[in-house]
Amino acid sequence: MQVSKDILFHALHADGLLMLPNCADAGSARIAAAAGSKALATSSAAVAWSHGFADGSTLPRELLMASVKAILRVSSLPLTVDAEDGYSADPAQVAGLIGELIDAGVVGINIEDGTGAPALLAEKIRAIRAVADARGVNLFINARTDVYLHDQTTERVRETIRRAAMYQEAGASGLFVPCITTEDDIAAVAKATPLPLNVMACDGVPAPARLVQLGARRRSAGSALSAAMFGCVDTLARPVLASGTVAVAPYAPMDYSALNRLMTQ
């Protein structure tokens, strides 16, 4: 019997470390899948930049849905979508958007508290869980808390754990803590919550094998791959304008024929 994608995606967090090279569109999703990724995850920044919008809930809803549908067209892997803050402060509107994503075939989301009240994110999670349950989908709700992005005090671990409990009670499936890097903090948070802990690849984050020992269950690239790609384009575009030549790329370019074959699979 074929396992449904929502069940499969939950199972990927049960043991070891789920590594996710976040994608922006159908092309980068094909590359992530060909590289061996077990699931696909969008980065809100990467998707926004691919459409010429800034990150931060500015992307028009129809473009988000277009990107998601394009990714689902080219891959059968479980897909989780970074929904930022749900593009609304109204839990009902947020749940409506997530319902559209579920209907399209998405089995996981990120939803963040940002600088808002944790209680508001908890309300959004409850509304999302109700919508998912009504559709018979065990949506993986990855509750992102931005404590480490905005708080530089010694209370960050305690506050993160407090929010984790609140989000778990509301129906979250996982906890995403961007910019948590020290071994002690990662171990403390992982031990304090049953929610699978998601960390983001950044300077100072322990190696994958060590993250598993500390209790983390997911490591995502965030916007790093997209930023690197745009950096490469920027580096190459300047000499083209100056001299009409394409300089040596800072990254090895993919072979034209190989890339074209990949896009036709």
Results as ranks from 00 to 15, higher is better:
37 S>I: 01
187 A>N: 09
180 I>F: 00
113 D>P: 10
117 A>R: 06
168 Q>T: 15
185 D>Y: 00
95 A>R: 04
234 D>W: 05
202 C>A: 15
138 N>L: 04
49 W>H: 14
46 A>Y: 03
28 S>R: 05
222 G>A: 03
86 G>H: 02
158 R>S: 11
19 M>L: 12
181 T>L: 01
164 A>S: 11
122 A>E: 03
58 T>Q: 14
105 G>T: 09
154 T>Q: 11
132 A>V: 04
86 G>T: 12
75 S>T: 15
260 N>M: 06
19 M>R: 09
201 A>F: 05
213 Q>E: 15
144 R>Q: 01
155 E>N: 13
121 L>W: 04
38 K>Y: 14
194 P>T: 13
51 H>Q: 15
240 V>M: 11
98 I>K: 00
114 G>W: 01
108 G>Y: 04
265 Q>H: 03
122 A>L: 01
217 R>F: 03
41 A>V: 15
186 I>L: 00
56 G>P: 14
255 D>W: 06
98 I>F: 01
75 S>R: 03
59 L>D: 13
63 L>I: 11
32 A>M: 02
193 T>A: 06
234 D>I: 09
51 H>I: 10
126 R>P: 11
199 V>S: 02
219 R>S: 08
163 R>K: 07
70 A>Y: 02
130 A>C: 10
165 A>Q: 13
185 D>L: 01
49 W>E: 09
197 L>H: 02
49 W>I: 13
193 T>K: 02
106 V>I: 05
239 P>D: 06
209 A>S: 13
177 V>L: 05
129 R>V: 13
10 H>N: 11
125 I>H: 03
126 R>K: 14
225 L>F: 03
7 I>H: 01
228 A>I: 12
187 A>Q: 11
39 A>M: 06
144 R>P: 12
79 L>S: 10
167 Y>Q: 06
139 L>D: 07
5 K>A: 02
134 A>Y: 05
95 A>P: 15
71 I>L: 12
43 S>F: 01
51 H>K: 12
106 V>S: 04
143 A>S: 12
226 S>T: 11
65 M>A: 14
30 R>P: 12
117 A>V: 10
84 E>V: 14
